[in-house]
Each structure stands twice: as C-alpha cells, then as structure tokens.
C-alpha cells in the first residue's frame, strides 16, 4: 500500500498549467520533503492528494483509495500553511470539535494537547494564542486519529528551536511506526537531517526526486575540500596541481586554508594524493547541502552559493 501515488498528473487553473505531468509516490514509513519556490505547485499537489481538487489529467490514488473519499480522509492528517482556528473557542474545544469530525476518540484530545505542550493553555481562547501556540494546536489537529498519511505545510513556522526539535523527534517516531509524511518547508537546512527523500518542483514539473545522495549524484556538484597546510599554501597548491588537475578543479585560499572544489568521482584520488604528500595538517570535506542541491536544480541566479566551507 502506498500512502499516495501521483501518476502523470497535470492540473490547469483557468487554462494556466499549474502542474505538468508529475509522477510522485510516498511509501509508508518515509518522510518526503517537498520543495519549490512559491507558486511551483507544492500546494496544488497537496490539495490534489487531499482531494480538494481533481486533476485535469492523470491519476491520483491515496492509501489505495480515491483522494477525497471520506473513508480515506479519515486517515489523513493535514497542517495547512498559516493554520487558523475559531478565535472565540478554547484550544480544547477546537480540538474536540475536530476530533468529533474525524471520528477520533475524545480521549485523544488532552493527550495530544499535552504532546504539543499546550496543557496550560488548553482552556484559554485561541485568540489569546501566539503564532507558535496556534501552530502547535494545528499539529495536534493533524495528529488526530492516528493518521497513516501526514502532510505538513511549513510546520516549524513560529516554533522555537526546542519545539522544532520536539516536532522532528515526533515525526521520526511516527515514521518509524509506519506513517508516511510529507514535509513542505523553505527552511532547508532545518529539514535536511530528517527527510528520507526530497522532491523538487519548479513551475509545475518535478525537477528531481530521490534521497540526498542520489540528488547529489544527479546534480554532479563539486565537493569542497578545506585543507590546512603543514607548511605553506603554495606547497599544497602544487600537490593539488600535480595530482592530476582535471578540468573542473577550482582553488581559492583564505585564512591560511586552501579550498578545493573537486568532482565527486575524483575526490578520493585527490584525497589520497594529499595524504601521501605529507603537506596536510587538517582536512575538512564538505558535501553539497540540500540547499545547494536545491539551488542547483531550480537554477536561481543571484542566490547561488556553492558547496560551502562553513
């Protein structure tokens, strides 16, 4: 059973093509990061999976059923971006209302409120809540009734670092229990350690899907070596140059360290040559981060920053 499966899905909004032939699937026990700039089609994809809209073309199946079927949506948890609630109700009343709608047990309500750290505030009206508290109530809402598919749109907005860490720990636990999770976020460094796979959307089509290692391979981006010389930077430079200077090599130095960009395939050869030379006091290897890979795929000009020393 897949959590969801999009097969060649396109969606038109007033003739404008918002999604174009997207193939994407999520298996249970997996966290998928869904990334893209504003208007790339993330929200549209989520709405299709939630059954709020039907695709103009292609097939959407969710938990082995049809998107939007009440029997299916009972097992889906969703946290919308900028979640809002009825301001005049208390947190407890709201969660109880949604629990009734979802057919979840009312005993879950205080449990979940405790889990997201709202025990003390559950009898205050939501209009007195801060952004972070609303967000936590939104999370509790998404977790009602043990979802098998959880979709979170910018879940960490307004959360302090401790609450953010708590959230990711919770998501890991749910994943280990077999929940499929979709995570949309713009805070790429924040989600990087927690996602199993990433999907990058631009202008309605899927640019790349896969785990971080395979995305790096697809992107073929250089790895950066940061080397502290035993004697002088110049001596190091000559070692690097002698160790088969391939085309894509680039060097620069600052603070007495040498930074070398190297193609992934040539990395080990260079490292071995460096070690053999005895000119290396310290060595740091920096793989392209999720953010670098993302920037590579969406091809943003001005924002580009490359395989990062620090």
């Amino acid at each position: 059973m897949s959590c969801f499966r999009l097969e060649n899905v396109s969606y038109k909004y007033d003739k404008a093509l918002v999604l174009n032939g997207v193939d994407l699937r999520l298996e249970p026990g997996e966290i998928l990061g869904l990334f893209g700039h504003n208007g790339a089609g993330k929200t549209t994809s989520i709405k299709l999976i939630l059954g709020l809209m039907t695709p103009s073309q292609g097939k959407v199946s969710v938990l082995d059923g049809e998107a939007g079927d009440p029997k299916i949506s009972q097992y889906i948890g969703y946290l919308p971006e900028n979640v809002m609630f009825y301001p005049q109700l208390t947190g407890h009343e709201i969660l109880a209302h949604f629990a009734r709608l979802k057919g979840a047990s009312l005993r879950q309500v205080p449990e979940l409120l405790g889990q997201v750290g709202l025990d003390d505030a559950m009898d205050s009206r939501v209009k007195t809540y801060s952004k972070g508290m609303r967000q936590r109530l939104g999370l509790a809402q998404a977790l009602l009734g043990k979802p098998r598919l959880l979709m979170l749109d910018e879940p960490t907005v307004g959360l302090d670092p401790v609450a953010t860490a708590d959230l990711y720990r919770l998501l890991r636990k749910l994943r280990d229990e077999g929940t499929g999770i979709v995570l949309c976020s713009h805070v790429l460094p924040g989600v990087e350690p927690y996602i199993d796979r990433a999907a990058i959307l631009t202008e309605g089509s899927l640019k790349a899907v896969g785990d971080l290692a395979s995305l790096r391979r697809q992107a073929n981006m250089p790895t950066t070596l940061s080397i502290e010389p035993e004697s002088t930077v110049a001596a190091l430079e000559s070692v690097v140059n002698n160790a088969k200077a391939s085309a894509g090599l680039m060097m620069r130095h600052d603070n007495g360290r040498l930074h070398v960009d190297v193609r992934p395939a040539e990395k080990m050869a260079l490292v071995k040559a460096l070690m053999a030379s005895g000119e290396v006091r310290d060595l740091g290897i920096y793989q392209p981060t999720l953010e670098d890979v993302y920037v590579h795929f969406i091809g943003s000009g001005g924002l580009a920053h490359r395989g990062g020393a620090q």
Binding site: S73, Y78, P80, F85, P87, Q141
Partner: peptide, 11 residues
C-alpha cells in the same frame, strides 16, 4: 477565517 480549507480535508 481560514478554517474552510481545513474542514474540507476532514471526512
């Protein structure tokens, strides 16, 4: 109020 979208994702 932003709740319609959320309600519609419920059964």
């Amino acid at each position: 109020g932003g709740t319609l979208l959320l309600l519609m994702t419920y059964p």
